[in-house]
Computed example of a mutant assay.
Amino acid sequence: MLDLSLVFWAAIPPLLLLGYYYCRIPFAPALLRLLIFFIFGAISGILALSLEWIFETVANSVVNWHQMKRSLPGIALRQLVEIGPIEEGCKLAAVVIPIYLQRRYRLLLSSVFILTIAVALGFTAEENWIYFFHGTASIFERTIGTPVHAMFSAPWGYALGVYISSNTGLNQNRKFIFTAWVNSVICHAIVNVLSSAWAYSLPLRFLSYGFFPFLLWMFWRLEQLLRKVQRKPPIILISAYTLQQRYWQRSLVLFALLLGGNAIFGLFLLVRIVSPLNPSILFESDILWFILTRFLLNLFFGFLAWGIYRYLRRTARRRYFY
């Protein structure tokens, strides 16, 4: 029997995020059309799951695939040749096929981009339900991961939008789509490898500290592409003229990503530690002190990262206007 509560928690966060992006996209398609593409995304998730099962069955008949994917190099290989290509390919097909079946008019770049986000979030909803059904992830973990598939697919969604909305340079734009799709596959693989690293012993476990900083960078990239779609100027952080100063500013950006990403990581771990506890003991002095100190420490690192970001933006504005 279908558990409606699981369906609710699987679908509502992606739908809310879709509504948020719908409000931000100029000249967005009708909301009903977005919901249809959201459903296409969920169907593409089911198709991807089936193709992955077929791939693993065939691969295991040739080599000991199940044994290989237990090591971190094996996980990386699986992500690059199986998970990334199949999932990004299914999402791409879920956007391209419906668009080309109804070519009554040329879509705008903004329309293609938001349709890509709709498909990616539908894929996320299907994936959420699979995790909840098998009990392999909590609602909190899947909720904070809601935008990840949209961040994966944003590069090829933007490239596809440029191609469909353009009247010239079609061959060049087609190559741009493939390059962006490969970029999405690689980023998809990197995220999944980093998320698996904390299950291993040191020093491999240190790779997990790159997980949230990398997600933060991908979120930044999504926002930059969204600004292009909105026809807004990009946010400039690297504004120095000399090579030495530019390296210094790039180092500050990397430092801010590390601080901000691991501040989010620290808060994530805090919630995972505290959530199984009985609410009646949360206000005991030792536990309350632990929660307060961990929260304030990660909040401090987060504000420090935000301060670096604001400093770089102010520096860029001064150079631009003066």
Rank of each mutant, 00 (worst) to 15 (best):
L222I: 00
L312P: 10
L115A: 02
I238Q: 12
T293L: 14
I25M: 14
A28Y: 11
T315Y: 06
V96D: 02
I12N: 04
W65F: 14
S111K: 14
S138Y: 05
F295G: 12
L207P: 13
T179D: 04
L77K: 11
L6V: 00
L222D: 03
H66F: 12
M1H: 11
F283P: 00
A180P: 14
L77R: 10
Q79I: 02
F265W: 12
L259S: 05
H66V: 00
R227Y: 07
L225E: 14
R319N: 07
V95F: 03
L80T: 02
I75D: 04
L47G: 01
R221C: 02
F268S: 00
A189H: 10
N262A: 06
G169Q: 14
A59R: 15
V229G: 08
M1S: 08
I86F: 05
P73G: 07
I86V: 13
N128I: 09
V96L: 12
F303D: 02
I273R: 15
S138P: 11
A94D: 06
Y131H: 15
Y309Q: 11
A263M: 05
P73T: 07
F295C: 11
H134M: 02
S165W: 07
F295H: 11
L109S: 04
L115N: 07
I117P: 08
P213G: 03
L222N: 10
I308Y: 04
I99R: 09
E87S: 02
E87N: 08
M218W: 04
A120V: 06
H66K: 13
L4T: 12
Y158L: 15
F37G: 05
P98F: 01
V58I: 15
I236K: 14
C187E: 01
Y209F: 13
W65L: 00
V229A: 03
L207Y: 03
L34G: 11
F300S: 12
L15V: 12
R104K: 14
R310D: 01
C90L: 04
V148H: 02
E127Y: 03
R227V: 00
Y322V: 01
Y131P: 11
R78G: 07
L292H: 12
L292F: 15
P73R: 12
E88G: 02
Y131F: 15
E56N: 12
L51N: 06
L121S: 09
W217G: 01
T136S: 14
E223V: 03
Y311F: 14
F265D: 10
L80K: 13
L222T: 12
M218I: 01
L101K: 12
L312N: 04
I43H: 02
A159G: 08
N171W: 09
A137C: 00
Q172G: 10
T242K: 14
L121F: 08
G145A: 10
L92S: 03
F40Q: 10
Q249S: 01
F212Q: 02
V271H: 01
R104C: 00
H149E: 02
W198Q: 13
T57M: 13
A256T: 07
F40I: 01
A150C: 11
A94E: 08
S208V: 02
L288I: 03
F152I: 04
W53H: 11
I99N: 06
F283E: 13
T136Y: 10
E284I: 05
G169I: 05
V112R: 09
F206K: 09
P279L: 03
A94Y: 06
L297C: 10
I186A: 01
